[in-house]
């Protein structure tokens, strides 16, 4: 297990649980995804890009599973209270009040759009390289 998973503060755990529920509700009530004229591009493995209609069946399953896993990761809105990182290392911008964030099990936080784009390519935390699915499983076990 990665180093950054060893010292979770109680604060962060409650944060994670709180947002877990919120996420589900948000997804059920949210507006349908916007109509897209362009065929979306997916990345079944790092450095491999393919249009959605060119994916093999195996890749489609992999992507569907990945989307499912990502939707289990807690999200929230930046309220300025985070004592930890205030910057998203992916776009190198500071978080702005009201921006949508995603919290990884290793406690690293990113903009939701930034990290989701990366997680579709590689299911690891960009900062600590912790595989997200392994960390997800251990979170479930301790709950």
């Amino acid at each position: 297990m990665g180093n950054c998973f060893k010292t979770p503060s109680t604060d962060d755990i409650s944060l994670l649980r709180g947002h877990d529920n919120q996420d589900g509700a948000e997804q059920a009530l949210g507006p349908p995804p916007p109509y897209q004229e362009r065929v979306p591009v997916y990345h079944p493995s790092p450095n491999v890009s393919r249009l959605a209609n060119q994916l093999s069946e195996e890749e489609q399953i992999k992507i569907a599973k990945r989307l499912g896993l990502i939707s289990h990761l807690p999200v929230g809105v930046y309220d300025g209270s985070s004592k930890k990182g205030k910057e998203c290392v992916i776009c190198m911008n500071e978080f702005i009040l009201g921006e949508s964030l995603r919290f990884l099990p290793c406690m690293h936080t990113y903009h939701r759009d930034c990290i989701d784009d990366w997680l579709m390519r590689s299911f690891t935390c960009p900062s600590c390289m912790e595989p997200v699915d392994a960390a997800l499983l251990s979170t479930y076990e301790t709950n």
């Binding site: 790092p46 290392v89 992916i90 590689s122 960009p126 900062s127 390289m129």
Partner: peptide, 8 residues
């Protein structure tokens, strides 16, 4: 520069 790249 390839496999071990991360956006961080």
């Amino acid at each position: 520069l390839t496999y071990d790249w991360s956006p961080a």
